[in-house]
Design a protein around this nucleic acid. Structure first.
Lengths: 267, 267
DNA sequence: AAGTGGTCTAGACCACTTT
DNA sequence: AAGTGGTCTAGACCACTTC
């Protein structure tokens, strides 16, 4: 009955033979067929990725999006439901739907799983040991989907809880994505690095894959952590991804588990 | 218009002043108010917990459940959607909705996060070192929500991948819940222990909380893992829960990360 | 052909927030 | 009072599976 959606294909109720496929003359390859709400979800994700709606901001209401895309509110709702489940947006009754941001206490412990054995969790302080530009070694390039020798930014820092050094980690970031990132900017910035990345470089981390091993502290790292050489440490290698499953950070960390533990919930 | 649901309260559309609260004479305390689909979800969960529908079995169709509870199919659907998201049931288009089970390759790696550095993951072989009844030490009792001195079953085993011993772990199980569990039964059973628990004892693990540290292997454990004493190991403490967030297993494991790593995805 | 879950719509009322 | 997300209903058609 309604004017057919612009570039979308409906796969249910009212419409059926009406819109469907129709590989219009010379058009691009067929959209591989997917539910309407997935197509809507993809469109919304594009707007998030492009920065049309920035972290912390309000996105258009369900009714407005439904009108814009010429679908029912229920279809928009299902798309947003999934985005909320993936932590890309946050719904607040009566107010609207907001783009998620790392500038929130709530988000801080989504990627930091090291918890104090006693007391309430809080965010550590950073001390930067080294910040420099370099060419990506082969292993780093592979994990960041770069070519060996591409420019990367290297960061080494120590993080402390209550003044006790607990984490020493090294980071590699694609030079292209984080052009202009300086040691000064890192030092003066308060709060999680992901907040800085999202605000200053328009790159939001949405997912990470972590591999954990046990190692013994070598002399240099033991000194940084104020521990005897040989102390057992958690060794984490983490690759973080932004929209489109694009890897944009490699982080290798050593965690002291003298007063902390790595917490994980299996659901 | 319809006969008001039996013990449920509707919080939307058609009904409103009709059914609502009405603290009928002398009835139990008010149900604290929650959405209809959450009430349906709770009822379905009860049936799962009580064993009315057993793991692997088909549950009634959405239409049948809607008729039974006198609600719309959409409301049942939303309840089941959440149960599926929590891995309590599995939906299969055209066939129906099934109770989840640990007797599936798919479920095996939900709780076992130790992955080979190279090659495809597969399930380890178990060698049981010790199985006995004992009284719960204070720390075990606390984690399992028992009283100190309550009967527990203690299990110690070594797990090997490709013949290489990789995991040594100790388990404590509430004696009441696992009455009749014997070493013989454990040894002859092939497949994940959680499959045995679910089939023979009607206790299904649905969630677990894990804490991980790094330690150095002591003499005894090093020998069991065929490693030199002092080798760094991952040390995991895991409490598993069944329906109603009731803790029913404590597991303390040491993982060799010579050829494996603990894998975790942060979403 | 019948039954199941999956998608989509249209419309209603509710709880919450802001104006 | 108006707007937003949250809940609920009723009905339609689709894709898949089984009979």
């Amino acid at each position: 009955m309604n004017p057919v959606p612009p570039n979308l294909t409906n796969n249910a109720g009212a419409a059926s033979a009406g819109a469907a496929v129709s590989p219009s003359a010379g058009a691009a390859a067929s959209p591989t067929f997917s539910p309407l709400y997935q197509q809507i979800k993809a469109l919304i994700t594009q707007s998030l990725q492009s920065g049309e709606w920035k972290p912390g901001e309000l996105i258009p209401s369900e009714v407005e999006l439904a009108n814009r895309f010429k679908v029912s509110q229920g279809t928009v709702r299902k798309a947003i439901d999934e985005l909320a489940a993936e932590n890309l947006v946050m719904r607040r009754q009566g107010k609207g739907t907001f783009v998620s941001t790392h500038h929130e206490a709530r988000a801080h412990f989504r990627f930091l799983r090291l918890m104090p054995d006693e007391g309430v969790p809080h965010y550590p302080e950073s001390k930067f040991i080294e910040v420099k530009r370099m060419r990506a070694p082969a292993d780093v390039a592979r994990l960041l989907d770069l070519k060996s020798g591409d420019a990367v930014i290297f960061i080494k820092r120590v993080q402390s809880f209550d003044g006790l050094p607990t984490i020493v980690e090294e980071l590699w970031l694609p030079g292209m994505t984080f052009k202009g990132l300086t040691a000064e900017r890192l030092v003066e910035y308060k709060g999680p690095m992901y907040g800085l990345f999202e605000s200053e470089f328009g790159t939001r981390m949405i997912r990470a894959a972590e591999k954990i091993r046990a190692v013994c502290a070598d002399g240099a790292n033991a000194e940084l952590l104020h521990l005897p050489a040989g102390t057992p440490l958690l060794c984490s290698e983490r690759v973080s991804f932004t929209y489109g499953d694009k890897p944009v950070e490699l982080r290798r960390g050593l965690y002291s588990t003298e007063r902390h533990h790595y917490q994980n919930d299996l659901n």
